[in-house]
Amino acid sequence: MQTNGPKKMISPLNLLWSGFKLNLLHLAWNFERLQNLGFYFSLHNMLRKIYAGRTEQRLAATRRHIGFFNTHIFFSTALLGVMVRLEEDLSDETPKAKEMEIESTKMGLMGPLAAIGDSLFWSGLKPFSLLLGVGIIWLTKFTFTGWLAGVVISLAFYNMLRIVIKYYLLFKSYYRYRELFSFIQKVKFQDIMKSLKVAGMGFLGAFTAVYLREKQLTIVGLRWLDSLVLCGAFILVIWALRSKKSVSFIFGASVAACIVLAYIT
């Protein structure tokens, strides 16, 4: 595939601005083409720069990028960087070949990035950050200072990582887009996920100990018996979760069971 002559450099500021606009990736999410509007919106300023004075090519790029798009919001910067580089580098002399190359690269990257992002963020970083926050709030007995500390630590932990990953991928994919695949392969996502899960379990064990020690348990009135009832309820909920019952179902069933128990006792 031929590349264009002198490279038109997109400035780091252009990249940063486009990356920032990706915060609106989900704003106009629709069932037909999913995140297409959000992605095109973030790409628009760079397409204008790349195709300055070449309206036909810019409109062709618009048609390309208003199509289907779906990936993880924080990993979409990787795709943004790659798409911009391809739009810049690939020759316009063979528009059909350029279109196919860009489309196939986009389709090839969307899925894997979405899978990585979903496990890393939604199953790992997000619940872990929130667990830290809730734990601090409970430890400090729901004071304002404790709440503030919990919220700040939770948000800082999550958002710092989010921003670093997002913009690192953006610049990496733009300046070194050929190395993107090998870079992603080198990152030990499985070990990172395992670390988050182990840390989550560790903190949970410690928080559970504090909860049991400090909670005024008043089901039966005897601490050891109330602890047993608590353990029994814990095991029951675990069993329900492993039986694929939704959390809301368990919530409703717990309320109903407690009301029935109140009538019986």
Binding site: L131, L196, M201, T208, I219, L230, A233, F234, V247, L261
Partner: peptide, 20 residues
């Protein structure tokens, strides 16, 4: 009583989320 059970549900959910 159900309010007392709520943290138990939460702890169990987190246990299952992070379980290894």
């Amino acid at each position: 009583k159900a309010l007392w059970v709520m943290p138990v549900i939460g702890l169990a959910v987190i246990y299952e989320t992070f379980r290894t």
